[in-house]
Design a protein around this nucleic acid. Structure first.
Lengths: 229, 229
DNA sequence: CGGCTGATTGAGCTATGTCAAGGGCAGTGG
DNA sequence: CCACTGCCCTTGACATAGCTCAATCAGCCG
């Protein structure tokens, strides 16, 4: 990929990222040490079981974090967007990645060297604390995901996922995910996801424009999502 | 409950807990500020949506952490035993508990006041780091749980759960969980869990003594568990 | 105009949930 | 020591959500 040149100091995503806790000097230092790449749609950013070399910070685009099974099936655990860090957990524990990160669309991602990240963790208490809080939140949402996959029927899970995705994709107005990815996100198969999405369209809860989904009646979706809580 | 008197300084569980990273002075300080209670089987240690008042440290016994649905169904996320901390996440994020903690058997649990915990986090770097690492591990295992519930059939999930539980219950030699709890742990219902457990018994993978399960052929179970990875 | 990728739809099939009816064992009280 | 009671565990019959497989369609690109 051709090397793009976003600058940390002027990065639009910085305000919503953990780097918001960094001083100007720190930001400048990170800016100098980082490298930056464009990942094309479907390109893998990092693979499960590989050791990390640094911290990925998403400048633009969107990335899915998923576990892939030998059968070819995939479980998407999280979708990360501009301003999000990915791959920091392995950096903290010195373990290989436990998930695979793949670009959902063309994305620009910066790579901050491992050492720089560790130094920041050691020297900037606010950064450290914000990092800890982020992980706690992630853990909570993952725990919620466990119980929902276990007990909510697909219809409820998709309703909820759409609301969550609408929030992630709020700038675009449309949820731009293939039915297959949507299915992997809620733990079902493509065909079932398609059927439920069609139902929602028939029930005027969502509209569809060129495969992309837009929520019309979020209250209705929320109600469906909460049916089994 | 009558007040028991375990001492942090001589606590057998200390070596395997995060307090292992504390100095003698710190341990002594914690010991003085803590209170301690016996929780009877099925007694709730803390409820979802309630704000924490301190850190629970399990001295003996076992505790299930679960989410409970309005339908009465329950998803067990984790089983904690002697030496484990519970409820620290809410303490870090200042949020109410996101899960309910219930004693699986009569258990002794100490409560370290919130302030003491925060002070430790601020002053003891090793403790802080170990805490972060613990959360990261928990997150990873929860993510694994998501994908398994989504794609592994019940048979595989129970095989895996038994191996994991055998490890948790290694001192006792027997896995002492009701079928209902086992079911909630893997995200299924009692009857299905019972049928699978019976199959495993017939296949000589496990033996059963007074409802308690003992693993005979862990390789076989592992194989079943890995069938769909 | 093909050819490709993703969306749809239909027709079974099956794993797993639900409901209902015992069965056994441990603890309790007489 | 025996009967009683209350958990659990177990089993069977049945219902169904959701998976699989297969065929077709629709938009898009070279």
């Amino acid at each position: 990929m051709r090397m793009p040149h976003p600058e940390c100091t002027t990065c639009k995503s910085r305000g919503s990222s953990l780097f918001n806790f960094c001083s100007c000097a720190e930001t400048e230092k990170i800016n100098l040490s980082k490298t930056c790449n464009i990942y094309k749609k479907d390109q893998v950013v990092f693979h499960e079981n590989v050791f990390p070399i640094g911290l990925f910070c998403i400048n633009s685009g969107s990335i899915k974090l998923s576990k892939i099974f030998s059968t070819g099936k995939e479980q998407i655990l999280r979708i990360a967007r501009a301003g999000d860090f990915i791959g920091y957990r392995s950096l903290i524990t010195n373990d290989p990645y436990s998930v695979t990160a793949t670009a959902l669309e063309d994305s620009t991602i910066c790579l901050i060297p491992k050492g720089e990240f560790h130094e920041l963790m050691q020297t900037n208490k606010n950064f450290y604390e914000a990092l800890l809080a982020t992980i706690c939140k992630e853990l909570e949402s993952t725990e919620t995901k466990v119980s929902e996959i276990a007990y909510k029927p697909v219809r409820g899970r998709i309703a909820e996922a759409l609301l969550l995705l609408a929030n992630i994709y709020k700038k675009e107005e449309y949820i731009n995910l293939t039915r297959e990815d949507l299915a992997s996100f809620v733990g079902t198969v493509k065909e079932t996801a398609i059927r439920v999405v069609s139902e929602f369209k028939d029930e005027k809860l969502i509209s569809i424009d060129k495969r992309r989904i837009k929520i019309i009646n979020s209250k209705g979706l929320l109600q469906i999502s909460n049916l089994y809580d």
